[in-house]
Simulated scan of single mutants.
Amino acid sequence: MSRDYSYLINTLGNWNFELSEHQIEQLDKYYELLIEKNKVMNLTAITEFDEVIVKHFADSLSICTVLPEDVNTVCDLGTGAGFPGIPMAIAYPNLQFTLIDSLNKRIKFLQEVVDAIGLTNVTLVHARAEEAGRDKKFREQFDLVVSRAVANIATLSEYCLPLVKVNGYFISFKSGDIDNEINESGKAINKLGGNLNKPILFSLPDTDISRSFLVINKEKNTPKAYPRKAGTPSKEPLK
């Protein structure tokens, strides 16, 4: 393999996590497919190999530092080009993943990736977040829901918590100053059946990129009124 994965390997080592040579080869094939498809379809603005390693692969797999042990089923909502879902599915072949996105072109691309790198633990779903949250196949069916989507935590919680089983988790990848966002979202999270833990702050090694995880425990069923109709959670976040 001509590309240098030492940053990723060393970073994961710092987090007491290890990928096999086969898993690194799967990530490398994913990188190739992503860059090739990105020439004809807008999947990511990050295309330089070194940046993809840090901002997509290492960032996605940083979840190894907070992943609860009692998780078997994972949903990546608003997966986009497959982050964090595809790297996670490569890293955790024993877990079952469902990746949901509202754009069918992205889902078709991800199906190409899943087929090409031989992932047998991934199901791909074309649906809006609000639709998925009301669908009996998905509502309160997952031990863990993750999202790197860019939205405030009140909006993301309305999208994601309806998918989480009681006693499961929603983990949101965040960056930047999140204090105000947290202060404004506590009541919304409680309305949806969740309880927000203290944020976990960290930096990606050898970079000035600061990140945080918001880990929300699902303590009770989400009321049937949520998620609200398409578009409403983003236009009128719960308070």
Rank of each mutant, 00 (worst) to 15 (best):
Q141D: 03
I86G: 01
H22M: 08
Y5M: 13
S234E: 15
G85W: 15
G186I: 14
S62H: 08
S203Q: 14
G80T: 00
S2E: 14
D50V: 09
L19D: 08
I209V: 12
L238D: 00
L204H: 02
S172R: 01
A116R: 12
M88W: 04
P68E: 07
I182V: 15
H56N: 02
E131F: 13
S210K: 15
K137P: 00
A149M: 12
V215K: 15
K198E: 15
I53C: 00
K198F: 07
Y31H: 11
S147N: 10
K108W: 05
D177A: 12
E236T: 11
L204S: 04
F170V: 05
L95P: 07
S147F: 05
Y31S: 00
E112C: 05
I86Q: 02
A151Y: 12
L119R: 08
V146Q: 04
T47A: 06
M88I: 09
F142T: 09
D115Q: 15
F109C: 05
E181D: 15
V215G: 00
G186S: 10
L204V: 11
L67Q: 11
L27T: 00
A116E: 15
K198W: 02
L144A: 08
G118C: 09
R228E: 10
I46K: 03
V146A: 09
D135Y: 00
G82M: 10
N42F: 07
P223C: 05
A91V: 03
A154E: 01
K220M: 13
G85T: 13
L27N: 00
F202W: 06
Y5F: 15
I182Q: 01
E130N: 05
I46N: 01
Q141L: 07
D76V: 07
V122C: 08
I53T: 04
F170T: 02
F17Q: 09
C75Q: 01
M1T: 12
E184L: 11
P84I: 04
K191G: 00
V114F: 05
T65L: 07
C160L: 01
E48I: 04
S212Y: 00
R139A: 08
F170Q: 03
I189H: 01
D177V: 13
V74E: 11
L95K: 15
E140L: 02
L103G: 03
D4G: 12
L161T: 02
D4H: 12
G80M: 01
K224M: 11
L196C: 14
L156G: 08
E25I: 07
Y5A: 08
S172I: 04
S157A: 15
E184H: 12
L103F: 08
N197R: 14
E181H: 02
C75V: 12
R106G: 07
S203I: 02
P87D: 04
I107R: 10
K220P: 03
I100E: 12
D70C: 10
D70R: 09
L27S: 00
I90Q: 05
C75M: 08
D70T: 14
D101G: 14
S185D: 08
N221E: 14
R148T: 10
H22V: 12
N121R: 07
A81H: 11
K239S: 06
L43N: 03
P93K: 06
A58V: 12
I182Y: 04
E219N: 11
L124S: 01
I171S: 06
S60K: 09
N190L: 14
L67C: 10
R106N: 11
L77M: 14
D50E: 14
M1Y: 05
S62W: 06
H126D: 14
V146L: 13
L238H: 02
R139D: 10
L214P: 01
G82V: 09
